[in-house]
Design a protein around this nucleic acid. Structure first.
Lengths: 197, 197
DNA sequence: CTAATTTTGCTAACAGTGTTAGGTAAAACA
DNA sequence: TGTTTTACCTAACACTGTTAGCAAAATTAG
């Protein structure tokens, strides 16, 4: 009885085309230009069909957000593997984070934009956990190596994260040109030096 | 001939009521709940009257954004005046920035939210200049005092700004509780220490 | 092979949004 | 008093997300 299988496959294909089309619209016109009707037109179906695959518009955005987090985690993991030295790992991850944001602006805007992030971050607790592990571990190693027992690794983790996010988010909204990767490198270098004290 | 004067005053009053009402809606229901029709209903005028005072909705938001920046600059200036020591000034300003963001969430969301900031920051070049002066000067003084000639004050300025913004913006979207003012203090302390090297 | 049932997809609407064209009544001026 | 300006409103346009209800097609059961 391969009939139902075929139907599921067909349904999956429409779902895929919705996401594909939506992504194309976002790339060409930005997030705020994305509408259900535009998607429906592009995939040559009527509007309610879109609602057969996604509960609402937010569900589509959440899907992209999830994709974005998965890609980012992969990039960060790959960056971390490039070295065994914790300080170098933190530098490489900052580099990867910067690259991700610059080459996937649409993802980044969605993931950390005001619209979604508040809802998304809490739902993505496991993903947040990955981030924590990824960053906390090298921080802890540096603190241990230098016998820095006063510093809280949790606070340091948030500091590291904030420095990266702050730089990139400012870069995104007010790309002044002066704000290049040197600033991030400087900030991360300062952060690491402060860990070693 | 005080007639025209009175009419100007009346017109100004309606404009003021529009802003007042809009602000109330934002406080009670958030930015995304603000609509022209709601404003019109609340001030007991028809919709087009709103457009006699503001070219469009964005103009209303820009007005709030301007208010926000003015208030923030005042707070930063006041914080800076509390001390003559440049490091203490940077700390006090970070403190004031944090306080501003926490006690004026609506302003902060608008000023640095994805929607406006891109358009706003460029228009507000003079305001940006104030920020630059406010922060760049103590940074330069610290660098000079410690004979740190390699470091670029421009890069340092952006670093300082990014650390603050990053922390607060993450706090805004994912208020985890762990992310408190201690993190900011830690980050700023590290930043200053790195200036003195 | 026919009849019942599920699935699929559509039209059309609802309740919003920002924005504007066009007309009317009131106020100010000559 | 007549003319012109101003103030204001109704009604619409072109969108948005979302859903109710119906018709046709595909699948399943008898």
């Amino acid at each position: 009885m391969g009939i139902t299988e075929r139907r599921i496959r067909q349904k999956e294909e429409v779902r895929h085309r919705i996401l594909e089309t939506a992504w194309q619209i976002v790339r060409e016109e930005g997030w705020q230009a994305l509408s259900i009707r535009k998607i429906a037109d592009a995939i040559e179906y009527s509007v309610p069909v879109v609602y057969d695959h996604f509960e609402n518009k937010e569900a589509i955005l959440e899907d992209f957000s999830r994709q974005g987090f998965e890609l980012l985690v992969k990039k960060l993991q790959a960056a971390k593997k490039k070295s065994d030295d914790p300080a170098t790992q933190l530098k490489h991850m900052a580099d990867a984070y910067w690259q991700f944001a610059m080459h996937n602006r649409e993802y980044y805007q969605l993931m950390y934009g005001l619209g979604m992030a508040c809802c998304e971050m809490q739902k993505c607790a496991p993903k947040e956990q990955i981030f924590t592990d990824l960053v906390m571990e090298p921080i802890q190693r540096i603190l241990d190596k230098h016998g820095n027992k006063e510093a809280s690794p949790c606070i340091k983790y948030h500091t590291y994260w904030s420095v990266m996010h702050g730089l990139i988010s400012i870069k995104m909204v007010a790309d002044s040109g002066e704000l290049n990767k040197m600033v991030l490198d400087d900030a991360i270098a300062g952060f690491i030096k402060n860990l070693e004290k």
